[in-house]
Amino acid sequence: MSAPVPGNTDVPGAGRRSSNALDQFFHALRDRSGLRILDLTGGSQANIQYIAEQGHRSTQDGLPRALDDCFATGGAGYFENQSDADRLNRFGSMTLDHEPGTFQGVLAWDVLQFLAPPLLEEVVVQLHRITEPGGLLLFYFHADDRIVELPAVNYHIVDRRTVATTAQGRVRPIRFLTNRAIEQLFAGFTAIKFFVTRDHLREVIVRR
């Protein structure tokens, strides 16, 4: 049984969607238990409960919150602030500071599309560092190159094929990444798999 998903589902960014990548992610881990799964939502009761029901242990890390705290206000702009040394130091102290090879799975959701180079590449390097070889990472990328900003949402697992999103009341600028750019981003990983969806999200599973 999954936890109730909080929040108002009538606001922009909120809703439910089917996720084949999520299904594949947990299907690939089905024969193992006691795995450590990193969830970058940073505090979803539904995700913690679902991961526990699968026999795994979840670790929450609020990377999106760290992004907003460190880069959203002041300075030259959201992406420009991501090159500011002081802000980057603060960001690094808030997130992804786990031991190498800690996790067998990472639910990264859509965080990468809110990052600009060189922070984008550095975050991918950190995800590679903290994931065990053979571990899986789940990502969402927006597929519409005309969209320049998106409501900030949290992702909550409803069941193995369904994800609910709750809006956080903020809007973040996004960077569009082509499939080729995504492949290049994960060039240091073992494998990458794209999932076709009916909406404007591309779902990606990457094997460390």
């Binding site: 909080p6 940073g42 505090g43 979803s44 009761q45 526990a52 242990r57 890390d61 609020g62 956080q168």
Partner: peptide, 13 residues
């Protein structure tokens, strides 16, 4: 565990 949406939590459970 009960976590309200919007709460910040970093750590393992």
């Amino acid at each position: 565990i009960v976590i309200e949406d919007g709460a910040y939590f970093k750590g393992s459970v």
